[in-house]
Design a protein around this nucleic acid. Structure first.
Lengths: 109, 109
DNA sequence: TAAAATACCTTGTATAACAAAGTAGTATTT
DNA sequence: AAATACTACTTTGTTATACAAGGTATTTTA
């Protein structure tokens, strides 16, 4: 039974990830590990193998850019930042999210 | 640009579908086409090729049952109804859904 | 200098949604 | 009565995403 719940939970999170990444980067540029950390704080577990390809994908779609930056404690970090295109996508996704929330409410009646 | 939005929207809906089906059947038994209709009313487009395998999956997981019923206008219909197991899953998923909503709020700050 | 830590990246697998096509029973039209 | 339309259920092949697991490289620490 638990495995069913876990599976559905992870399915629910799917698709929201892209939105979350944009929301996070809309506030402040960040590098992958710090994004994972922030998501964890917000109760959303994501692993590296999920996030890295996603960032690359969004970068290739022109939603993000990045620059390398030296770290004082470890290897250099790839800081991602949102682009204008990414920002305008966010407003559309805000709407889509509200729609989904209201869809669930409607179905629940 | 539009195709990006549409893609993300459809990704967002993913995973929520299972939850929606259970919510719908929790109110009243229904057959596939009528479920699709109700989802459409609530602004969630789903096609047959998506729904039928999902219903079969949930049936195999013991979340649903079904019975055949004659129709006065067309071929017989397969009415699905939720089981006790399905009902107890719903309460867990209600929690999961609230968690997700609050995750988005947290990230948005 | 070896081990640990940090950070990035890639590959293979499983799953879910969808498009599209198929099957079959029932109703309608000619 | 035969052909067509409609309703409903089902299956197949494709695509996309998340994840587990493993890999590379740089820096710090023991």
């Amino acid at each position: 039974m638990e495995y069913i719940v876990d599976n559905i939970k992870s399915q629910m999170r799917k698709g929201l990830l892209e939105y979350c990444i944009l929301l996070i980067l809309n506030k402040k540029e960040a590098y992958a590990s710090s994004i994972i950390e922030e998501l964890k704080q917000a109760n959303m577990i994501v692993v590296e193998g999920t996030l890295y390809p996603l960032l690359i994908r969004q970068k290739n779609q022109g939603l993000l850019n990045y620059r390398w930056e030296e770290s004082t404690q470890g290897p250099p970090r790839k800081y991602y930042m949102i682009t204008d295109k990414g920002r305008s996508l966010i407003s559309e996704m805000d709407l889509a999210w509200q729609e989904i929330v209201s869809t669930i409410e409607t179905i629940r009646k």
